[in-house]
């Protein structure tokens, strides 16, 4: 949010295609009803909108002509799910991906759990079979997508500005930009956050939650929504275990307590320990995605 006036003018969601270097603005779902702040030229302006909404002249033209309870109100039924629009776009994404036999994995974790390092390593280990495409979500910077590009995968960076999660529309735009190949695996690296991304379906086939041994064993208990939404939980940075008091047994028990259906793997994205299991899991899921797509 703009520190001066609290407006959202400079918190637009931007997408950058690392291959072409082109940046475009994305309208997040729910932003259409807002007033003005349309930047037709696409520039991230420096407050040339002049804050004139600060100078409303306090003459109270709106006049308090309606006292509480006064005047007739008309009830309008809506009966709509708040996230219906996001979920509709997510379904379209899922159908688009399904038809192209693309496996989409939504990678979520707290900041610093090792999502990007895991992806760098995974891109190398997969060696192009299947091809990897990445949509990177961060509030700001293209640092992560630069790392992914260096690791050899086409990547689109989405900067959410004030936003704390990716939504289905951002992923739709990322797909349109990246055009992942038939039979590929698409990783969506969500904004580092164990709360908000749990609520927003992106059209992925599975959520994969990372949590590192440098965090607490009770992470699953503290963030049950996210862990309950996960199909696979990767406990990362296992190479640090000898240096920490972290109890792996307790962490695994906590995952099972919150989500008895989740599969767990203990890995180190840095040393590669445990990664063959993860790579096999991806390849098996890609195979399933291709099977499901058959006519």
């Amino acid at each position: 949010m703009c520190a001066t006036c609290g407006c959202e003018a400079n918190t637009a969601t931007m997408m950058t295609n690392l291959q072409t270097g082109a940046s475009t603005e994305i309208t997040a779902i729910g932003q259409e009803a807002r007033h003005e702040h349309v930047h037709a030229d696409g520039t991230r302006h420096a407050h040339e909108h002049g804050h004139d909404h600060h100078y409303h002249d306090h003459d109270h033209r709106h006049g308090h002509d309606r006292l509480p309870g006064e005047g007739r109100g008309l009830k309008v039924e809506i009966e709509a799910r708040v996230l219906a629009k996001n979920d509709a776009v997510a379904s379209r994404n899922r159908a688009w991906l399904g038809g192209r036999e693309i496996l989409a994995l939504n990678l979520v974790s707290a900041p610093g759990s090792g999502k990007t390092t895991l992806l760098e390593r995974t891109i190398a280990e997969l060696g192009g079979r299947p091809p990897v495409f990445v949509i990177e979500g961060d509030q700001a910077t293209a640092n992560d997508s630069a790392r992914i590009q260096k690791a050899g995968a086409p990547v689109a960076q989405i900067n959410t500005g004030a936003g704390c999660h990716l939504d289905a529309e951002m992923v739709r735009r990322g797909l349109a930009e990246l055009k992942p190949a038939v039979g590929a695996v698409l990783f969506i690296e969500n904004v580092g956050n164990l709360v908000c991304p749990a609520l927003f379906d992106l059209g992925e086939h599975a959520k994969v939650v990372l949590f590192s041994v440098a965090e607490g064993e009770d992470k699953p208990l503290k963030y049950p929504h996210m862990f309950q939404a996960a199909e696979l939980v990767l406990i990362n940075k296992s190479d640090l275990l000898p240096h920490l008091d972290f109890s792996l047994d307790e962490a695994l028990a906590n995952v099972a307590r919150v989500n008895p259906r989740a599969r767990t793997m203990t890995v180190s994205a840095r040393t590669g320990e445990g990664l063959p299991l993860w790579i096999d899991w991806i390849r098996e899921r890609v195979r399933q995605a291709q099977e499901v797509a058959l006519p």
């Binding site: 779902i29 629009k85 996001n86 709360v195």
Partner: peptide
């Protein structure tokens, strides 16, 4: 703070 995004979705429906 997904509530801001939720609130925006609500305002759009409303």
């Amino acid at each position: 703070m997904h509530e801001l995004s939720i609130a925006s979705n609500i305002v759009e429906l409303v």
